[in-house]
């Protein structure tokens, strides 16, 4: 039995499932007592309390609903960079496909949002296995490259998805930091469980080059001829500052920030993620 994927917070699903719901339901989990108000279903009156206290109380139980997971995949040009055998994009796709499989397998709904310069694809969450096939088939066909539209895509997602959901973002986040944080904040305000897989290539954080190079921007026409050894320290300083700020912002907003290198073992990455989730999920229930 595979490790299930739990949400860290209550979900608003349409069917019963593994995940907590903000609404009261008919599960076996007691929630609280509430005074009767006219219109309440008399069947839910606690007759024992009425008999002992002569007061009308309703006994409420936790509702358990399904998970709706949105997988947002950054398709920008920078995601196509690779110093190893797989690009950040490919690494993200593997994670995405596996998680989508797990979600649908455990009866939850999974959707896909491909974010390029514009939103390339938007598959709403579905629970049925055929949807999984559709989702997996869509991934290889996504149009990749060009400037990033991550910020706009996340804002759009936050606007569209009104009910609580799990938003799993796969991106290198190579865009302006403030707008990005704003878009992440927007998702958090909508009470979504946001997971950010920050994907980086080892070369990007090490910057090991030994000769002058002409760096060409994967997202635009910009190029820069430079001596890497000369600017390495400055480059790493800027990158470090970016990552720290991003991580700090995510922590403030309760976003599950996960920095992933494409050199990491993706199975371990998934295992760590799922185990941590299950621990969080177990304590939540």
């Amino acid at each position: 039995m595979a490790q299930p994927l739990y949400s860290r917070q209550a979900m608003e699903g349409t069917v019963s499932g593994l995940h907590k719901s903000p609404h009261r339901g008919s599960s076996v989990e007691f929630a609280e007592y509430r005074q009767y108000v006219p219109g309440d279903d008399l069947r839910r009156l606690d007759w024992r309390v009425l008999a002992r206290t002569d007061r009308y109380y309703l006994k409420e139980f936790e509702a358990e609903t399904n998970l709706r997971a949105y997988f947002a995949l950054d398709l920008s040009g920078s995601m196509q960079f690779s110093s190893l055998e797989s690009t950040k994009q490919q690494f993200a796709e593997k994670l995405l496909a596996t998680l989508a499989y797990l979600v649908i397998r455990q009866g939850d709904a999974a959707g896909l949002l491909g974010i390029g310069q514009d939103t390339v694809i938007d598959l709403p969450p579905r629970r049925n296995p055929s949807h999984l096939q559709l989702l997996l088939d869509s991934i290889p066909t996504l149009k990749k490259g060009g400037p990033t539209g991550l910020v706009e895509g996340l804002h759009g997602l936050a606007e569209r998805v009104r009910r609580r959901a799990m938003i799993v973002i796969f991106s290198d986040c190579f865009c302006e930091l403030d707008p990005l944080m704003s878009s992440l904040q927007h998702l958090c305000f909508e009470h979504h469980d946001v997971v950010l897989f920050h994907l980086l290539d080892p070369q990007e954080i090490q910057f090991k080059f030994d000769r002058p190079l002409r760096f060409t921007d994967l997202e635009g026409p910009t190029s820069l001829v430079t001596e890497p050894s000369v600017i390495r320290d400055e480059y790493l300083k800027h990158l470090r500052h970016f990552m720290e700020t991003l991580q700090k912002g995510c922590r403030e907003f309760g976003i599950d920030y996960r920095r992933i290198l494409t050199s990491d073992n993706y199975e371990k990455v998934l295992a760590d993620f799922l185990i941590e989730r299950s621990r969080v999920g177990a304590t939540s229930f």
Binding site: S78, P212, R214, T216, L218, G220, T226, V230, E234, Y235
Partner: peptide, 28 residues
């Protein structure tokens, strides 16, 4: 004739280049 190197994290590279331009130019 510099060997081209596709690069994603261009924003940091440009920022670093701007910061190091004086030192790099002096060395060059």
């Amino acid at each position: 004739r510099h060997r081209p190197q596709p690069w994603g994290a261009m924003q940091f590279l440009l920022a670093a280049s701007r910061s190091s331009v004086n030192q790099a130019k002096l060395k060059q």
